[in-house]
Structures are given as structure tokens and as C-alpha cells.
Computed example of a mutant assay.
Amino acid sequence: MRPGDHAAPYTGPQTAMMYGLVFVSLIETVALAVLIPWPAVHRVVLVLDVYGVLLMLALHAACVTRPHVVRPDGTLRIRYGALFDLTVPPDAVASVRVDRRYPEGRLVTLSEDGVLDLIVGSQTTVTVELTRPLAFRRPLGARAEARVVRFHADEPRALVAALRQPAPP
């Protein structure tokens, strides 16, 4: 981040779930270590369990260290860890508002009418209507375009205020 940037974290709704999954995975690792009598199978399962725990911790750490960012010039960067990154230039923003929704679907959901939902903890809290469609990459690399972007921010009012604030002269 640069000086003057406004960071907007988005991990609030998922933190308890992520740590809960890590805890359950650790319990599973210990239980399987006791239950599996074959050394070769035990080693393979142990490696897979440790890899899964590290993957969950890394995903959450990436989300914590890569928040949404509003730059002083009004550029909005919407992110989800290392999986999703969309830069919205200030001239592409028609309107922005706090708008809590509970959409169904995966992390990145694009409707037929061009509404992109970046869902965290089964919710979105900010809606950005665009002046033109913006191209983006989905987490697995496919390209798409959106004309409305809805995403989650832990403090949506602060993010919306930072976007509406005029750039300093």
C-alpha cells in the first residue's frame, strides 16, 4: 500500500470459520494417526492433512494481508487474497453504496445481466455500479465482464466514504 491509501479488510465473516476448519483438520490428523495401522498410508494421510491445514492458513493470511484498497485518486482495488484482483478506475464508478446482501453461490458469481458478486461469509456489503463494463479474471483464469460489482467489506461505510471523498488538489 502507498501513503494515503485506505485499506478495507474483508475477512471478518470468514475468520471464525477458517480457524474452526483448521482446528477440525488438526483433530482429524491426530485421530487418523491413531486409527490408521499401516505406516505408508499413515505418512500419506499425514502429509495431506498438514498440506490442507497449511493451505487454509495461507488462504486466510493472503486475505488478511491483501485488503481492498481505495487510493487517494479514487481508484478502487477489490481483492480476495491471491485469488481475485479487480482494479476499478475512478471514471468507471457511476455510484457506490452500502448494500448488505446474502447472495447464493461461489466466491465469484457473475449473473447473466453482468452483476459480479464477490461473496465473503455468504454476504456482500458494498455495491458499485459502473459506467461501463469492466473486464476481470476469475480465480481459475477465465475472462468475464461486469457492469455492477458487489463485494464485502468489514466496514462498508468507511470504504464508501473513502470512495466518495474528492481527491486532494
Rank of each mutant, 00 (worst) to 15 (best):
R79G: 05
V108C: 13
T11D: 10
P139G: 07
T125D: 02
D154L: 05
R2D: 08
L76D: 05
Q123K: 14
P168W: 09
L159S: 00
L26W: 14
Q14R: 08
G141Q: 05
S95V: 02
V93E: 00
S111D: 13
V148A: 14
H42K: 15
A135C: 06
V45S: 08
H6E: 08
R66F: 05
V120T: 11
A162P: 13
V41W: 06
D154R: 06
A8S: 15
L35H: 10
R66N: 10
T125L: 04
T11K: 01
V160S: 09
P133R: 14
S95R: 14
V45G: 05
L32Y: 11
M56K: 03
T75R: 14
D85G: 01
V41N: 01
V30S: 03
C63I: 05
D117L: 02
V115W: 01
A62M: 09
F151V: 00
T109N: 04
A153V: 10
A82W: 04
D73A: 12
G81A: 04
L110S: 02
R66K: 11
E112M: 10
L21T: 01
A16H: 08
H60R: 09
V24M: 14
T15W: 10
I78D: 01
D154G: 08
E145Q: 14
A82I: 05
E145I: 01
V120K: 00
V41H: 07
V53A: 13
V30M: 09
L134C: 06
R137A: 07
V149N: 03
C63W: 06
R71Q: 12
D49R: 14
A167W: 06
L86T: 03
R106L: 10
D91V: 02
